[in-house]
């Protein structure tokens, strides 16, 4: 059995004003093996973040089930940790304080908190900045802290919600390579949401392509590019053909959206 089993998942929202119910995600079936790096890609509004938050246990399910190692997900748990988009670092805590936050919340008893935090900070290459506060760091550095905070609690599954979405293209590429380097060490199961096609291919063992109205899975694509990977892979033929395939998917989504606009 796969590590993460998502069956017939549906998530509905009620619009606060009109009380209208709409479906953010519907009919989602997905299996993720232990140690797999899965990216979820799709245009905005396709429910990819909602799906991730559901796996994190931060969103209530309307239908279906999510199981991790055979256990039903009913809320957040120590087996999972989330790397958020920017601005989730507590501004009044130092880098070390932020990395310790998750450990404190989970009542970590695997030794000295400071030591554990410093170990993670070293892992993401920020030893010199452990006493800095978030506003003194660049966007890329902040996301390293975000990753360190999630890794510190030693989760089985790492959930990432467009963690590099706010970074510029160059930093984004560097962070991708850096993330793979860190991931290669422990090979934790990873679920990574993005709207960037190159990023989705570069990181993944498996790409989940999502479409909208309601959010659903259009296709699951296996990526057989060799590991460890570096930037050189971006120019390979396999990469190009994958990119072409994904682009076609997203373009289809865009044109259907325009149609809706014209009708409205």
């Amino acid at each position: 059995m796969a590590q993460i089993e998502i069956r017939d998942l549906g998530i509905d929202y009620r619009k606060p004003k009109s009380n209208e119910v709409f479906s953010a995600v519907d009919n989602v079936e997905l299996s993720i093996e232990k140690g797999e790096f899965v990216t979820i890609v799709g245009s905005s509004g396709c429910g990819k973040s909602t799906l991730l938050m559901a796996v994190a246990g931060l969103v209530n399910l309307s239908r279906g089930s999510i199981k991790i190692d055979g256990k039903q997900v009913t809320g957040p748990g120590p087996d999972r940790a989330v790397v958020f988009q920017e601005a989730s670092l507590l501004p009044w805590r130092s880098v070390r304080g932020n990395v310790k936050f998750g450990l404190e919340m989970q009542r970590w008893n695997g030794g000295d908190l400071n030591e554990r935090a410093m170990q993670m900070i070293r892992l993401v290459g920020l030893s010199r900045f452990s006493d800095y506060h978030p506003h003194q760091l660049s966007g890329g550095m902040r996301q390293r802290v975000n990753i360190a905070r999630a890794l510190a609690v030693d989760p089985d599954v790492l959930l990432m919600d467009e963690p590099f979405g706010a970074l510029d293209a160059q930093t984004r590429e560097i962070m991708g390579t850096e993330l793979l380097r860190i991931w290669e060490r422990h090979k934790k199961t990873a679920l990574f949401v993005t709207h960037d096609i190159d990023e989705a291919i570069f990181l993944a063992d498996k790409i989940v392509v999502m479409g909208r109205n309601p959010g659903h899975i259009k296709e699951v694509i296996k990526v057989d590019l060799p590991r460890p990977r570096d930037e050189a892979i971006l120019d390979s033929d396999d990469f190009h053909s994958l990119r072409k395939r994904l682009r076609a998917h997203l373009a289809e989504d865009m044109s259907s959206m325009q149609l809706v606009k014209e009708v409205a």
Binding site: A56, A81, F84, M105
Partner: peptide, 18 residues
């Protein structure tokens, strides 16, 4: 309070008191 902080804290299993 920034809802993103609250969500982050909840993701680590923070209690209401935390």
């Amino acid at each position: 309070a920034d809802p993103r902080f609250l969500r982050m804290a909840r993701s680590f299993g923070a209690t209401k008191l935390d």
